[in-house]
């Protein structure tokens, strides 16, 4: 059991990121959105914490350190997407391209403001949850020490 955990769990991060990307990209025309994607990634990170312990998990994945900044950056992106139309005299959250205008597509990805909004939400949710996991892991380790 524990062997499987130790072998499998750290390697789950890649597939989880893939799933998350798929959820975002497909999301706008199918079930799923940035929130779910963020939770999926956070779950994979949580698994690493559980199997490797907080210290090893964070050493092996230094990008986790930037989780709080990423979260805030995501939220700032969301705000920017939401309120930039105001600068052009449009109400907040105006959708670009507008209704009826063609959408640029790169494969399955549709380039719309709503998708950018979703990416921001993904960053925020993933970052915020990883931050929470970090804080709790720290607490638990302190208690044990």
């Amino acid at each position: 059991m524990s062997v499987i955990l130790e072998v499998v769990c750290p390697r789950l991060l890649g597939p989880a990121a893939m799933v998350a990307a798929a959820i975002i990209v497909k999301g706008y025309s199918d079930v799923g959105d940035g929130f779910s994607a963020g939770v999926v990634v956070a779950l994979a990170v949580a698994l690493r914490y559980v199997t490797l312990g907080a210290e090893r998990a964070e050493r092996s994945l230094p990008v986790l350190r930037h989780a709080p900044v990423l979260a805030v950056a995501g939220l700032l992106l969301v705000l920017a997407i939401g309120f930039f139309p105001v600068a052009f005299g449009e109400p907040p959250l105006t959708h670009f391209p507008r209704a009826g205008e063609p959408v640029v597509e790169i494969g399955a990805l549709e380039l719309t403001t709503a998708v950018a909004l979703d990416v921001g939400i993904f960053l925020l949710v993933a970052g915020a949850l990883v931050e929470t996991i970090h804080q709790i892991a720290r607490l638990v380790e302190e208690r044990r020490a």
């Binding site: 999301g27 706008y28 025309s29 199918d30 079930v31 799923g32 959105d33 940035g34 929130f35 939220l75 969301v78 705000l79 939401g82 907040p92 959250l93 959708h95 391209p97 209704a99 009826g100 959408v103 549709e110 719309t112 709503a114 998708v115 909004l117 979703d118 939400i121 925020l124 949710v125």
Partner: peptide
């Protein structure tokens, strides 16, 4: 009209996007 297929996602990201922004 919002270029979306799944209505729940469109509600979350567009129609009621402001709610989502606050909620996150």
């Amino acid at each position: 009209e919002a270029h979306g297929g799944d209505v729940v996602t469109v509600i979350l990201a567009d129609f009621r996007g402001l709610d989502t922004m606050v909620e996150v």
